[in-house]
Design a protein around this nucleic acid. Structure first.
Lengths: 149, 149
DNA sequence: CACTATTTAATTGTGTATAATTAAATAAAA
DNA sequence: TTTTATTTAATTATACACAATTAAATAGTG
C-alpha cells in the first residue's frame, strides 16, 4: 500500500507536470498575445488558418483536438473582432467554413517573432526542446487513439 | 520570412503539443475519476491533501500553481460533496485551512490504482516517462520563475 | 498609537473545455 | 422512395482558469 500511495504523490505525477506546464506556457504567451488582441486558443486557431487559408470547423477541431462546443463560441468572438469569416458550405449545409479576413492575415507578421521569444524563456537547448516535442507528439497520438475508442 | 512562418506551423509547436496532451490526459482520467465522483483538478487537490492532511488555500495554490479564483469555488463544491472541510484560522483570520473528511480520506484507497492504469495507456517505458517528467519539471520551474517577475 | 503596506481569500467578469442533447442535412439501406 | 443511420454544428449546463478588484486582517514604521 505504501508503494501505491507513493505514486499518488504530486511530485511523482507526470500528468500534473504536463498540466501545470501547459498553464504556465499560456501565461508566458499572454503579454505577447495581448499585443495582437487574442487569447492562446485563438492564436492556435490563427496558426491553422495561416497554414490552410480556409477550413471547416470539423477540420479545425481535428487539428487542434477541440470540439464544436469550444470552437463555435470562440470563432464567433473572433468574427466579432473581424479576424475570421464564418460561412456555411453551399454543397453541404451542415458544414461551416472558416477563413481569414485581411486583418486576420496581417496578424501573421506581428506573430512571427513570438516562437523565438517564448523559446528564450525555456532555458533549454533547441535540441532538447525538439526531443521533448517529439516525445509529447507520440504520447499525444497514443492517448488520442485511446480516447477515440 | 519563410523561416519565420515555418515556426508558426502547428506541427513545429512544442507548446501546442503540451497543451493538447494535457487535455487528452484529462480525458483519459475522466472515466477513472467518475468512479470517485471528482474532476481532474479536484483529484489534484485530493493528492496534496492526502500528502499534507491540512493546508491553507494559499499553500495548495502554490503546490498546484492555481489561484484563489480557481480554488475557492472548486473547494466549495468539494465541501458540498463532503470531501473537504474549510475553516478559517483562529490565529490569522485571513487564512482558510482545508482538510479532509473521512469520506475524502477513504477515496485514497480507491484512487491507488489510477496511476498505473493511466501509465498503461501511454505506450512508453517507465524510464522514458520518468525522463519526460524531469524535463517538464525543469521547464515548469523556469517558466514559473519567469512568470513570477 | 496611528498610518501605511502587505497578505490572504473572495468576488467578478471573460474565456475556454467538454459532455450531452438537439437539429438539420446528407447518405445508405430496404 | 421512404426509412434509418450518420454527420456536422450549435446549444446547454457544469466546471475550470485567470486577471483585476475588493475587503478584511495583519505586520511594519515612525
Amino acid at each position: 500500500m505504501e508503494q501505491l500511495y507513493k505514486q499518488l504523490q504530486l511530485e511523482n505525477q507526470l500528468c500534473f507536470s504536463i498540466y501545470a506546464t501547459s498553464r504556465e506556457i499560456t501565461k508566458v504567451y499572454k503579454p505577447l498575445l495581448d499585443k495582437l488582441g487574442v487569447t492562446y486558443p485563438q492564436y492556435l486557431a490563427l496558426l491553422v488558418l495561416w497554414e490552410h487559408e480556409t477550413l471547416s470547423v470539423k477540420k479545425m477541431g481535428e487539428l487542434l483536438y477541440l470540439d464544436s462546443g469550444t470552437l463555435t463560441p470562440m470563432l464567433k468572438r473572433m468574427q466579432d473582432q473581424e479576424l475570421v469569416i464564418r460561412q456555411r458550405s453551399h454543397e453541404d449545409e451542415r458544414v461551416v467554413f472558416i477563413s481569414l479576413t485581411e486583418k486576420g492575415k496581417k496578424l501573421r507578421d506581428k506573430a512571427c517573432h513570438i516562437p523565438e521569444e517564448v523559446f528564450s524563456m525555456a532555458n533549454k537547448s533547441q535540441g532538447e526542446l525538439e526531443k521533448l516535442k517529439e516525445t509529447l507528439q507520440e504520447l499525444l497520438h497514443s492517448l488520442h487513439t485511446y480516447n477515440q475508442k
